[in-house]
């Protein structure tokens, strides 16, 4: 699904990712953990195609295609979805208007007909239930005046509507109370499938109690310094990041 090789990225001339390798197969859930400043969010943003990140070497292949040469909107249409760490408030643009535009853009991209208003409404209503959101959220401006938890649920709701092949969740768990965390995790779990891969970028192990990952990677100093199964996340929770030697080689477990 996603194959990242020797990825090096600088931001404002400062090296953030220093030769990152990552291979995510179809249907797999990978957790990327690491201390603050290790490059987790940079990785998420580079996959989504945000400006301001300069890729100095390496490659990212998505479904066998060169992801880095694609415009961000085409990445989305091909099935890449980023759940933002800090979802932006957009006054005056209704949630439903954004979803309709985004979904139909993807359908046109795939050569499918656009959904008519009725089918679209049926789809979004069904997905609203997944994240326990009220229908009025559809007609509110994107994230405007939403609480922290509502913003994160809205990200998962958008993901549910757009049905990506690869979802990157950038610290979706941060700032959530336990009830909101369960709803978000429930939404993600419901969307797990053979054809859909998920990258969970997180600082804490807590989320992984609810979304059980296939692989856990530790990112430090811009590289993956250790990989393992879900037990690795528990070890990190107990012992912190200190015991991980960032100079150590790649995956050892």
């Amino acid at each position: 699904m996603l194959k990242i090789s020797d990825l090096k990225v600088t931001v404002d001339g400062k090296a953030i990712l220093n030769g990152l390798d990552l291979d995510v197969g179809p249907g797999e859930v990978h957790a990327i953990m690491g201390p603050n400043g290790s490059g987790k969010s940079t990785l998420a943003n580079v996959i989504a195609g945000r400006d301001g990140y300069e890729v100095t070497s390496g490659s990212v292949a998505f479904m066998g295609n060169d992801l880095l040469s694609m415009a961000p909107e085409n990445r989305a249409r091909e099935g890449v979805f980023l759940a933002f760490q800090y979802p932006v408030e957009i006054p005056g643009v209704a949630n439903i208007a954004l979803l309709k535009e985004g979904l139909n853009a993807a359908r046109r991209h795939r050569g499918e007909p656009e959904l008519d208003a009725l089918d679209f409404l049926k789809l979004v209503r069904e997905k609203l239930r997944l994240v326990e959101m009220k229908e009025e959220f559809l007609y509110r401006s994107v994230n405007e005046g939403f609480s922290g938890g509502e913003k994160k649920r809205n990200e998962i709701f958008q993901m549910a509507v757009l049905e990506p092949r690869l979802a990157v969740l950038d610290e979706t768990d941060s700032g959530l109370d336990i009830d909101a965390l369960k709803i978000v995790a429930g939404g993600v779990n419901a969307l797990r499938s053979e054809e859909r891969s998920v990258i969970l970028v997180t600082h804490y192990q807590r989320l992984l109690d609810y979304i059980v990952p296939d692989r856990v990677h530790v990112l430090a100093g811009g590289r993956i310094v250790r990989s393992g199964d879900k037990q690795l996340a528990r070890d990190l929770e107990e012992r912190g990041y200190g015991w991980i030697d960032s100079s150590a080689g790649a995956a050892t477990a």
């Binding site: 989504a48 195609g49 945000r50 400006d51 415009a71 961000p72 909107e73 990445r75 989305a76 249409r77 979805f81 980023l82 933002f84 979802p87 932006v88 957009i90 643009v93 954004l98 979803l99 535009e101 985004g102 979904l103 853009a105 993807a106 991209h109 994107v142 958008q158 757009l162």
Partner: peptide
């Protein structure tokens, strides 16, 4: 970028 990341053209 938020809108574009949802597939909307620029």
């Amino acid at each position: 970028f938020y809108l574009v990341s949802r597939g909307v053209d620029r």
